[in-house]
Amino acid sequence: MAWIVLVLSGVMEAVWATALGKAAGFSRLVPSVVFVVGLVLSMIGLAWAMRTLPTGTAYAVWVGIGAALTVAYAMATGEEPVSALKVVFLLAIVGGVVGLKALH
């Protein structure tokens, strides 16, 4: 169960990171609210997962999922250019997350 919560927390990290980028310095209400809610949910989930998972592994997986999804979303929406190397490096992050899970 901790792994499921951790993955969902990583997804919420991508949500809050994306919302932060759209909040324009917290001058836009809806993205600012999404940021706060996403941040709180992400941190609660990370903290809960870390009760049973090692801190380093949990944190690395959380960051990896959040970073990969944030960049993938930005590329999918055209906010960030797509390149073959970016895709390769995102796959390397995903591979690292999968590897950490496999070792645990």
Rank of each mutant, 00 (worst) to 15 (best):
G21T: 01
G66W: 02
G99Y: 10
A76F: 12
I65R: 09
A58E: 00
H104N: 15
M1W: 08
V71M: 07
I65G: 10
V98L: 06
V61W: 00
G66V: 09
G78E: 01
V33W: 00
G95S: 12
V5C: 03
A60F: 04
L39Y: 14
A19Q: 09
V82A: 12
F89W: 15
S42Y: 05
A47E: 11
P81I: 05
A14I: 02
A67D: 10
V40S: 13
T52K: 06
A67S: 14
W48S: 11
K22D: 13
S9I: 02
I93V: 14
I93T: 07
A19N: 10
L20R: 10
W3H: 09
M12T: 13
A60K: 05
V15F: 08
A17R: 02
I65H: 09
P81L: 04
R51L: 15
V61P: 07
I65D: 11
T57D: 12
P54W: 12
W16C: 02
G21I: 03
A92G: 11
V15K: 07
T18S: 14
A74N: 04
P54L: 13
G96D: 03
L41Y: 11
G45L: 05
T77K: 07
F35Q: 06
V63E: 09
V15G: 03
T57V: 15
A2R: 03
L90K: 10
T55S: 15
V33M: 00
V30R: 08
V40F: 14
V37H: 06
M1R: 10
G66I: 09
A74M: 02
E80N: 10
A23C: 05
K22E: 14
A49D: 01
G10H: 01
V97M: 03
V97I: 07
A19K: 09
P54D: 14
A2P: 11
S42N: 12
G64V: 03
A19P: 09
H104L: 14
V36D: 00
I44W: 12
T70M: 08
I44S: 06
L41I: 15
V5Y: 02
R28S: 14
V63F: 09
W16P: 05
V36N: 00
V71I: 15
V71N: 00
A24I: 10
S32V: 01
L46M: 13
V33L: 09
L53D: 06
G66H: 07
I65N: 10
A14K: 11
M75C: 04
L20S: 00
K101P: 06
L6V: 06
L8K: 04
L46C: 13
M50Y: 11
L39G: 15
V34K: 07
A47F: 14
T70P: 00
F26T: 02
A23D: 07
G96Y: 05
I4S: 13
A72C: 13
V61D: 09
A14D: 07
A72E: 05
M50H: 11
L46V: 12
G64P: 07
M1V: 13
